[in-house]
């Protein structure tokens, strides 16, 4: 299968801090990839490099045939095909739910408003919040806000969806509704990279789990291999830590 995302010897520094060390990674089209690892290991940085929310200093990243490391790459074209869901939602507080979702299609794709609204309502329905289209983010619960953020990410009908710990900022009782929405997306055939420690989600839908520590990919494997038979001590101690949490 063709790789939709490819990292070749990627290195990234924040000042003197070396946060990504020689990352090599191929993600085939349609793969559901779960990324886990201790806090500070570089997971967020890794997926933020995919849509160039972060620049890299060495190596190559190819996404959808676009050389992302190339300073002259068109960010608009790159990002139009990638949905990104943040840990803290980052909905636009001054816009209604519907306006949040319609903004990019109307401004970036120059879609006419009526069509954008139809699509937005479709995506909102997809996350089960059609009745909240006129609400403002502040009127929604955390779980609802994150579902709207997912709908916003889907609005451009992207080939790739990136999730950076989408349930970590939620109260425990709201995690399930967000994970359910994400599970539902799997059948659409999008490529998904999900930074999460939700083992249940990983086991249910992930094709592959990637474990990071200190800026390196330490091991990869199928969810059952990784969680039940980790190859490295570091992975084993990490898994036992999330199990006792």
């Amino acid at each position: 299968m063709e790789n939709i995302i490819e990292f070749k010897n990627v290195n990234k520094w924040f000042g003197k801090l070396h946060v990504l060390k020689d990352i090599n990674l191929q993600i085939p089209k349609g793969e559901i990839l779960v990324i886990c690892g201790p806090s500070g290991s570089g997971k967020s940085t890794l997926i933020r490099c995919i849509n160039r929310l972060e620049d890299i200093q060495k190596g190559e990243i190819i996404v959808n045939k676009i050389p992302v490391h190339d300073k002259s790459a068109s960010l608009t074209r790159l990002r139009a095909d990638i949905g990104f869901v943040f840990q803290q939602f980052h909905l636009y507080p001054h816009m209604t739910v519907l306006q949040n979702i319609m903004l990019a299609p109307v401004q970036v794709k120059k879609m006419d408003k009526a069509k954008a609204e139809t699509i937005a309502m479709e995506k909102l329905d997809r996350v089960g919040l059609a009745e909240k289209s006129g609400a403002y983010p502040a009127q929604l619960s955390g779980g609802q806000q994150q579902r709207v953020a997912i709908a916003r990410g889907l609005a451009m009908s992207p080939e790739i969806m990136l999730f950076d710990e989408p349930t970590s900022a939620l109260d425990p009782e709201m995690i399930g509704e967000v994970l359910d929405v994400m599970v539902n997306l799997v059948s659409e055939g999008m490529t998904m990279c999900v930074v999460t420690h939700e083992m249940g989600f990983a086991k249910k839908v992930a094709h592959r789990v990637l474990f990071m520590d200190e800026g390196k990919i330490i091991e990869t494997g199928t969810p059952s291999d990784f969680f039940d038979h980790p190859k490295t001590d570091r992975a084993a101690s990490f898994i036992s830590m999330i199990l006792t949490h």
């Binding site: 849509n51 929310l53 990002r79 139009a80 990019a104 401004q107 990410g153």
Partner: peptide
């Protein structure tokens, strides 16, 4: 910063 990032991630250019 999250507001900038959310807007950038969805493909809006700086002016937008």
């Amino acid at each position: 910063k999250g507001q900038w990032e959310a807007a950038a991630a969805s493909g809006l250019n700086l002016v937008q």
